[in-house]
Write a protein that binds this DNA or RNA. Structure first.
Lengths: 302, 302
DNA sequence: ATGACTCATGCCGATAGAGCATCAATTACT
DNA sequence: AGTAATTGATGCTCTATCGGCATGAGTCAT
């Protein structure tokens, strides 16, 4: 039993004529006769009662007709679903992101993607860069928005730079440097520092440490909070200064001043990460959308 | 897209191996590779991501997998339904019958058939012989239980004699003949007659009229009821005598006496009628059942 | 009675597909 | 590290299937 055969059977049963079915299927009548005869032989049943003047559908024929129609309907549905899935317009997209760096543009990105792919379920997971790495390994997320990841993973994960955050100094209100417009890093050599946990943002942490080294000192670290919001609170409480990406200005931050570094440290990029081996079309569709959205995001974050 | 192709696709996607699928399907691995490649070419998408060590199902592949499984399930269901329909174990059987002649054995017949064919819906229509004829013409019933039908229909309808009813004389209580054990037809030549409508039972009516003719008289007909029950009431009311098949003794009949005719008139058979052109297996199954039940029915009606 | 139509059948040729051998790539086991 | 084994891909040949043509047989209408 093949779909091809079933198509001709449905045509014959519907048109009640072998010849008419042949015309409709762009073939000749003997081909139809053969297919029906073979089908009947295979099932061991007469499906169509026919003489030279009339074609009738037998009871088993009626039964087969129903099921055949369902199967053929499933075929066109299958084609549609495959096409949808292939263009990434179906399925689930799981996104890991850091709210500190992404809160301002992620919502509009989601809105645009949902508009283009209404049948895709979006799942957002707030997580640090390290958590995103683990999640990629466990295949719990499809794309991630974070700072650059360790080099050894560049093979399995592809990185797309989105925008860059300058590093700024965060000082509490009333601090001796709080009124300054700009600072050089070396001026901070004797300060206490509050730095984001190395575990949670290895790249950023190491970047700052090595910059301090270049400036001729090794920072004295008093606190290592896990959340950006905690970091700001601790700075405001006077536990130390922080060096952090400019984006955290957008968080609630009473009692904190943000001061530009001059000469500037290397800016830290925010990247979109996704599996290098092309896995699912939804992912590619999302990457494409992000690529087109990059100019707008850069303008917004400048 | 063919069911054969889909079977191999499902096998590969399930086993996650081309070679294993080949073994399962009793063919060789290159055949599998070709089928999958052709299917992908036809749909214009990659369904299986594969290298020499690993086979993964892509997003479109997952979509197709679901639909393919449904289609294959429908195929086995179709085979089952066709087999059921072919053995007459499914569908609807519409039966026309005359309660006067059949009330005593139809119920047990229905019970036996329903036991053998639990998935067949039985529809019973109480109707006279004439109504059954019309119903056959309109294809509203599949089989009919009635007295013999006009000869001209013997081609389209086949008749299976089931049992025979002797004709008896029905006289009201208190009638001058009511005490007699047996009568000759000629003794009734000056009686009034109540006969069943010719429209509704042409064969029976003509049979009686010609018998009277043979006996040397033409019956004076005073009433022509349409229902057997009415006929009995009218006889009981003294409107005339009736000649009717013995089976009506089984109806409620206070005030009526049934008297054997001697010499006997030709007995009237009760027949099962069904389309001569083999149409649906359910019908054949019912005919077969009736054939086996005939001895029991004859014993019951004797 | 003949012609126009139906579906069935015999034959031929093209072609799709199975099977074999082989290749390239990766893993596992020495 | 090197070899053996296994994976899927590819090129080839051969066969069986199937479409198309010609034709036959049966039915209906003119």
């Amino acid at each position: 039993m093949e779909l091809r055969t079933l198509k001709t059977f449905v045509a014959v049963a519907t048109l009640k004529s072998f010849s008419a079915a042949a015309r409709e299927l762009h073939t000749v009548q003997p081909a139809i006769s053969r297919q029906i005869a073979d089908l009947e032989a295979e099932l061991g049943v007469s499906l169509l009662w026919r003489n030279t003047r009339e074609v009738r559908v037998t009871a088993p024929g009626e039964a087969l007709l129903e099921e055949a129609k369902r199967m053929l309907a499933l075929e066109v549905q299958a084609r549609k679903r495959v096409a949808l899935a292939a263009s990434g317009q179906t399925g689930t997209l799981r996104i890991g992101y850091m709210s500190s760096a992404c809160a301002s543009f992620v919502p509009s990105l989601m809105r645009d993607f949902a508009a283009q792919h209404p049948d895709v379920t979006l799942v957002l997971h707030e997580m640090t860069a390290q958590q995103q790495l683990d999640a990629f390994a466990r295949e719990e997320i499809d794309v991630g928005l974070s700072r650059p990841l360790p080099m050894e993973l560049r093979e399995t994960l592809t990185a797309l730079p989105m925008y860059e955050d300058e590093l700024m100094v965060v000082v509490p209100e009333g601090h001796r440097l709080a009124r300054r417009k700009r600072l050089a890093l070396r001026e901070l050599s004797h300060e206490d520092f509050v730095l984001f946990q190395r575990d949670q943002a290895t790249g950023l942490f190491d970047h700052i440490i090595s910059a301090c080294g270049d400036a001729g000192f090794s920072p004295r670290i008093t606190r290592q909070p896990a959340l950006m919001q905690t970091l700001l609170s601790e700075v405001a409480a006077g536990l130390g200064l922080a060096i952090a990406p400019a984006c955290i200005r957008r968080l609630q931050c009473d009692g904190c001043h943000f001061i530009t570094l001059r000469p500037a440290l290397g800016a830290v990029p925010l990247e979109l990460h996704y599996p290098s081996t092309p896995s699912r079309p939804v992912i590619e569709a999302f990457v494409t959308l992000v690529e087109t959205a990059i100019p707008a995001i850069r303008a917004q974050m400048a």
